[in-house]
Amino acid sequence: MSTTHPAHVDSSKYYIPHGSPWPILGSVALFCIMAGAVSYLNDWAGAWAFIPGALLLFGMFFGWFSTVIDESQHGVYNQEVDRSFRMGMIWFIFSEVMFFAAFFGALFYARRLAVPWLGGEGTKVINGLLLWRNYAPGWPTNGPGHVGGLSNGTFSVIPPFGLPAINTLILLTSGLTVTIAHHALRTGKRNVLKIFLALTFLLGFTFVSLQVHEYGEAYRELGLRLSTGIYGSTFFMLTGFHGLHVTIGAIMLTVIWLRTLRGHFTPTHHFAFEAVAWYWHFVDVVWLGLFIFVYWM
């Protein structure tokens, strides 16, 4: 593997790794995962292929990142390489933003256009008269067909100023703690760094568990489910994907924390830390959008 100790490389040159097995293993892993998912969704042979895939994927990440960390620790990466990593991370986060944009777009389209049109508002008077008589458009809604929800087709939503508000505070705080940690890293206060980094991912995991709890209530009591019309669809897809990202972010924070315990990162040279911090701020911002447009308004 590329763990051939490249310590002797002169870092005046842009480091070009040679052969790495991780990408192809990653592809195989993803393929197995998807094969498993397909076979599960199609009721073929269950999701068994998922397991080796997931394991392989985990191994791939572990191997790939330890290779990179190892190289980084041996000072193989010069400023230019570091800059490549930063740019790469920024553009990756941009792509994530666009992914969420698709779902926010769906939310706004449904609320502002589709639902009113179904109710015969605006240019679509005929809809109300011809297809969906006595449907009063509004939000939240599970549509003129009252799709999903409780047995009587109704459902209620999660009040914004309960758990969601608390979760907002949690995430905002975690954004603060990670910034403090970053500052501590730059000023060489290792202990502050360790403590606040730990706080950050602990807050992250707390957020996730509260979300899980909230989902439980939504499903059991409120009749708010993934299948509860357009509201349920947008609600769970948006918060769900966000929750997934928080989980990933929190795991990455944990990894970074373990690395700080190992004494990695210097006040000047800590791309991995910054990358994770950026990612964390990104999930933070997405949540604000969710809190305002999904829960609150």
């Binding site: 179904l118 005929i126 809809n127």
Partner: peptide, 9 residues
């Protein structure tokens, strides 16, 4: 276009 659930004129 004949869109299910919507009427076009």
């Amino acid at each position: 276009d004949a869109i299910p659930g919507y009427v076009n004129e």
